[in-house]
């Protein structure tokens, strides 16, 4: 509950940050005017700043934070390991490769995203196919295949970087990989919303079963679950949400790994509370960090640098000051 208030607070706060000042009352009017018809008493500049510049970016940050932390929370339970992040099955490596490939081939902006998203899905599909050939422990097989596929795509990415034009393409690839929400526009947002919702919503509905799945393969089956099907569904949903996020914002490390921990410290491991808490916390956190990224200096600071720079000391402080530790 408190977390929901936090998110709403951060959400509105984020509209005020930036070089163009927007008074609170005016902001409310501009936003409400989208739902109700209100007399337009403001200048078009205000409307552009609020609706076309700040709104897409804020919504993208909320979506990205939610997607990464919900996917991370689901994976940590499914793999029964609190050190797992959403890219364990190679989705980020695949998505980065896809983006770099598109930049190397000088494709357009939208093509970069489509390529990134598709290669992210393809990487995880490869990992699942490889895992299905292994006869032993299915969860371990999935992790190992994920690592293998991730390594393959990382090498392919390195190869593209090596081949890329060092004055033009290489910096473009590097900046893309560093991540950021500065390039998000309204039409892109539409492409992001659908896959993120499609990924997060089923996980949300299945949150009780995620509890049971985290007991391990045998116990979950003994409690009546079709573990193979459920696992596939969790992988699919998490991958969809993560790939859409990486395609729009580049690599954003740390959020999917640590936000579920924070949420677990706050509300315990029961997914009925953990999943909503992760979602709210992840959204607020990424939004706050993105606010910092765009207002700390004149130039924009890449998001992935800040997520860990801010998060690591904070997490350490939390570790020192909570009794229950990090499980």
């Amino acid at each position: 509950m408190g977390l929901a208030v936090l998110l709403v607070g951060v959400f509105f706060l984020s509209f005020f940050l930036g070089p163009y000042p927007v008074p609170p009352l005016l902001l409310l009017k501009v936003l409400l005017a989208q739902v109700w018809s209100l007399p337009h008493t403001w200048s078009p500049t205000v409307e552009i700043v609020v609706l076309l510049v700040r709104l897409p970016r804020i919504v993208a940050a909320v979506l990205a934070g939610a997607a990464l932390s919900v996917a991370g929370a689901a994976y940590q339970g499914m793999f029964r390991n609190p050190l797992v992040s959403p890219d364990i099955l190679g989705v980020s490596a695949g998505a980065c490769f896809g983006a770099a490939l598109a930049i190397y081939l000088s494709w357009g902006f939208l093509a970069i995203e489509v390529s990134s998203f598709s290669w992210g899905l393809l990487a995880v599909l490869l990992a699942c196919l490889a895992a299905s050939r292994v006869r032993h422990d299915p969860v371990l097989a999935l992790v190992l295949s994920g690592i293998l596929v991730g390594t393959l795509f990382s090498s392919a990415l390195a190869l593209i970087k090596y081949l890329a034009d060092p004055y033009d393409q290489l910096p473009a690839i590097t900046f893309w990989l560093m991540g950021g929400l500065g390039r998000v526009t309204l039409p892109q947002l539409k492409w992001m919303i659908a896959p993120v919702l499609l990924g997060v919503l089923p996980l949300f509905l299945l949150r009780w079963r995620l509890n049971v799945l985290s007991l391990g393969e045998e116990e979950a089956r003994a409690l009546g679950l079709n573990t193979a099907g459920l696992r596939l569904l969790v992988v699919f949903c998490s991958t969809l949400a993560t790939a859409a996020t990486v395609a729009v914002s580049g690599m954003i490390g740390w959020v999917g790994l640590v936000i579920p921990h924070l949420a677990r410290i706050l509300v315990g491991p029961d997914y009925r509370r953990l999943l909503p808490a992760s979602l709210l916390l992840g959204s607020s956190y990424l939004l706050l960090v993105d606010d910092l990224a765009r207002s700390l200096s004149v130039a924009e600071i890449p998001l992935s640098i800040l997520t860990s720079l801010v998060g690591a000391p904070f997490f350490f402080w939390l570790l020192l000051h909570t009794r229950r530790g990090w499980a």
């Binding site: 029964r80 609190p82 509890n211 007991l215 391990g216 409690l223 679950l225 315990g268 029961d270 499980a327």
Partner: peptide, 21 residues
């Protein structure tokens, strides 16, 4: 197990075969 579920939550998981998906 790796996650510190509360005792009541663990027992509730036994209800899973009687709950819809």
């Amino acid at each position: 197990p790796p996650f510190p579920f509360r005792v009541l939550e663990v027992v509730l998981m036994g209800r899973t075969p009687h709950l819809s998906a």
